[in-house]
Design a binder for these strands. Structure first.
Length: 375
RNA sequence: GGGCGAAUAGCGAAGUGGCCAAACGCGGCUGACUGUAAAUCAGUUCCUUCGGGUUCGGUGGUUCAAAUCCAUCUUCGCCCA
């Protein structure tokens, strides 16, 4: 049986049903709802594990497909697993490679057995099956691991979505049967595209397989906001309330708040770190493109409401300078800020849930930060 | 003093008679980014009231037409004395 992993729900917002609780993992307890920064290659780009922790982050994501390519799961295993390898003692979650079925669509082929990726770096063929993904994820040793799925593009025909969703369900079952480690929580992933009946079907089928947690996939890949909202609701309605729910790939404020309102516990996204590296910063006053000339002599903090290391020690003029000069440190400072900014939003959500005022909090946030995509 | 070569938009650099307001790179300005093929990608960069106007070191020519050919001047580089 699964050791040391369970969700302790401490409060449910009386108006919305948003949940506050503690997710217990073999590498520590983390409060939910939470936002998880992405560290695809066993590093949140530009940040040390200490810096990530200082942002208030609980779980770090890593990627099975990319770590399989470099350095290979055997090396990570020899190093003592991901935690030892990357010097991070908090909880780690690995995505299965299902997102790469979507993002690397031009170089892969899907069959019932699995997915063959064409690795353009060396010409190799990389075959991923549900069993292979689990084998790699067990070698990597994260606390939370994902079933191998197909992240379905949007838009897609109902026929395609139905066929793919059924296959992902079969893959989930195969992964579950292949999974052995008792110190890892394997999550099933709900697909079903934008079709309510398919989302319901997928959620019901996965719930019946009794996974320790459930993900909602195929969201935030370009679909309209209301469609995403519906996908979340359609899936959650049929997931067991006592299990953790993970909304994959969501990272803009409005989507995060929608997810939490619907009862999501975990979310991840590359958005804050990627935007940061590209000089786009999330602030109380909206988006700041730090490269802009208007900040050249702006000696005020990026966001005076923010308590992060960047905002408490540096000015916009300095951040702009680092960006224009191409200095790595700028990307680090920007990443610290964006992650902290999003995590502060989620911390606020947790406090609001405890006091049954989540809806009010959400509306305040949207009024303040707007509801633009990509922030 | 003599010989040769070079001068092109903020910088570097193509272009050597019409398809040139002038490739390309850098720099400048702006935008995008959602389970990371992403320290990436895209737009824009002489002026304009969008009709057009003024450019390719200066001046004067040749030609229907010149950044491109000729003359001359200026500046810079190299070589010879």
């Amino acid at each position: 049986m699964l050791k040391d992993f369970y969700l302790e729900i401490l409060h449910v917002d009386k108006i919305t049903g948003a949940r506050y609780g503690i997710l217990h993992t073999p590498h520590g307890d983390v409060e939910v709802p939470m936002f998880m920064p992405v560290g695809t290659n066993a590093t949140v780009k530009c940040l040390s594990p200490e810096q990530v922790k200082a942002c208030g982050s609980g779980v770090i994501l890593a990627n099975t497909y990319h770590l399989h390519l470099t350095p290979g799961e055997e090396i990570v295993k020899k190093a003592g697993g991901l935690h030892a390898f990357m010097g991070y003692d908090g909880p780690i979650l690995t995505d299965s490679g299902g997102f790469q079925v979507f993002s690397l669509a031009s170089r892969r082929k899907i069959t019932e057995e699995g997915v063959t990726f064409h690795n353009e770096r060396n010409g190799n063929k990389e075959f991923f099956s549900p069993e292979e993904a689990i084998r790699i994820e067990e070698a990597l040793g994260a606390d939370i691991i994902m079933s191998f799925d197909e992240c379905i593009p949007y838009p897609a025909t109902k026929e395609y979505v139905a066929r793919s969703t059924e296959r992902t369900l079969r893959w989930a079952k195969r992964g579950l049967e292949a999974h052995r480690r008792e110190d890892q929580a394997l999550f099933g992933i709900v697909q079903g595209g934008a079709f309510s009946d398919l989302r319901e079907h997928a959620a019901r089928e996965l719930a019946a397989m009794n996974f320790p947690g459930y993900s909602i996939g195929g969201t935030s890949i370009g679909e309209p906001k209301d469609v995403c909202y519906k996908m979340i609701r359609d899936a959650i309605a049929f997931l067991p309330p006592e299990k953790p729910r993970y909304l994959m790939g969501v990272g803009s404020i409005d989507y995060i708040l929608d997810g939490i309102e619907a009862g999501v516990d975990m979310m991840d996204c590359v958005l804050p770190t990627r935007l940061a590296r590209h000089g786009a910063l999330m602030t109380s006053h909206g988006r700041v493109n730090i490269q802009r000339a208007q900040y050249a002599e702006d000696f005020t903090p990026l966001d005076e409401e923010c308590d992060c290391y960047t905002c408490t020690h540096f000015t916009k003029a300095y951040l702009r300078h680092l960006y224009k000069a191409g200095e790595e440190f700028g990307k680090t400072l920007n990443s610290i800020h964006n992650i902290r900014f999003l995590i502060r939003i989620v911390e606020g959500a947790r406090e609001a849930i405890k006091e049954d005022r989540f809806l009010e909090y959400k509306q305040e946030c949207l009024a303040k930060y707007g509801d633009k995509r990509g922030f």
